[in-house]
């Protein structure tokens, strides 16, 4: 199939897995007769992101969405699977080390703006670090000027470069984080819950800023969040994760209009919305099972109202549907009621 350059995905993730060994120490295992325990934090996730797009991953705590983010920027090495950035596999650490040019084109924004800035560095030095590291500019005067530009770009004053992080509020610190991420002139930004530590009015400022920057600089975002309303606002495509697997992904409009996977439906139903005053809803019972001991078959089956014998034994494969893909036996067999009818019932 011929694709134009603009359609070429900037990032392709295939069969990505990351397991963590959380076993007790060797002596305890021997004495107490315990087995090794492995958490499958990310268990076979595949998706691709086109240039200039915003792809969001949503899910509840422990579903592996932040692990995916860290795998992509290389803070963890994958257990298996490939991460292709512009066609080059940079999954294994050795491969990544061989392509510093590709690595430099991606940057990350973290959740907690209080923990992600070094409190003993001036903001100017924090932002200049990627410029100095990548030797983008040599002359100190030019660096200072570039830092000033970056600060103005994120809505701060160039004079703020002399200040320390503690002199800023949470929203301003997140602006500094964004300025630092932009300093390395990346094309691809991984944003791990960039606004969840912020108040709503400040969140609106940061989301607006991120959209403006995307338009101006042609950035591609991987956006990680647990807040579906924020995801609806920023994304082009949305993926829903549950216990380390991507259970459904689709274009934003399609996903929110006709969610297929029962878990996606549950999430959409669980969100309190401003229009729902006095609405009575029946919350889905149960909680996310421990990833140490996930249920057999489809990991959502103990909470799923449509589960049958097949769901208990067989892991559903991800199957393409119009505008996206979904991993659910009920969808495949066509025994899932339409979303609107269910909502009215």
């Amino acid at each position: 199939m011929q694709k134009s350059d603009a359609d070429q995905p900037i990032l392709q993730v295939e069969g990505l897995r990351r397991y963590f060994d959380v076993s007790a120490p060797w002596l305890n295992r021997v004495l107490e007769g315990k087995d090794r325990s492995i958490v499958r934090a990310v268990d076979g996730v595949s998706f691709e992101i086109k240039r200039g797009e915003t792809f969001s991953l949503v899910g509840e705590s422990g579903c592996g969405k932040s692990t995916v983010a860290r795998l992509i920027v290389g803070l963890y090495g994958p257990t298996a699977g490939s991460i292709r950035f512009e066609g080059t596999d940079i999954g294994p650490s050795a491969e990544r080390a061989r392509h510093p040019d590709l690595q430099a084109r991606m940057q990350m924004i973290f959740q907690d703006p209080y923990a992600s800035l070094n409190p003993r560095w001036r903001v100017g030095d924090i932002i200049a670090e990627p410029i100095r590291f990548r030797k983008l500019l040599k002359d100190e005067k030019q660096i200072a000027q570039r830092v000033g530009e970056l600060l103005s770009q994120v809505g701060l004053s160039p004079l703020d470069a002399r200040k320390y992080p503690h002199e800023f509020s949470g929203g301003q610190r997140q602006r500094v984080s964004i300025a630092r991420a932009l300093a390395g002139e990346p094309e691809f930004l991984v944003c791990d819950e960039p606004t969840s530590a912020l108040d709503v009015s400040v969140q609106a400022q940061i989301l607006n800023l991120m959209k403006d920057l995307q338009r101006r600089l042609g950035l591609t975002y991987l956006f990680i969040s647990h807040n579906l309303a924020v995801v609806y606002h920023v994304s082009d495509k949305v993926g829903v994760m549950y216990l380390g697997r991507l259970v459904e992904w689709a274009d934003k409009k399609i996903l929110f209009q006709r969610p297929l996977h029962p878990y996606t439906r549950m999430l959409l139903d669980a969100i309190p919305d401003l229009d729902m005053t006095g609405r009575q809803r029946t919350p889905v019972a149960g909680e996310v099972p421990s990833p140490l001991n996930p249920p057999s078959g489809c990991s959502f089956h103990p909470r799923c109202p449509f589960a049958n014998e097949r769901c208990k034994s067989e892991i559903p494969a991800v199957r393409a549907v119009e505008g996206g893909a979904v991993a659910c036996h009920a969808v495949e067999e066509g025994r899932l009621p339409p979303w609107k009818i269910q909502a009215a019932a």
Binding site: S201, Q205, L207, N208, Y232, H233, L274
Partner: peptide
């Protein structure tokens, strides 16, 4: 400033 599902706005109201 509160993003809402089904509300299509390019920018949120900003204070």
């Amino acid at each position: 400033a509160i993003p809402s599902m089904g509300m299509d706005v390019e920018r949120l109201t900003q204070i």
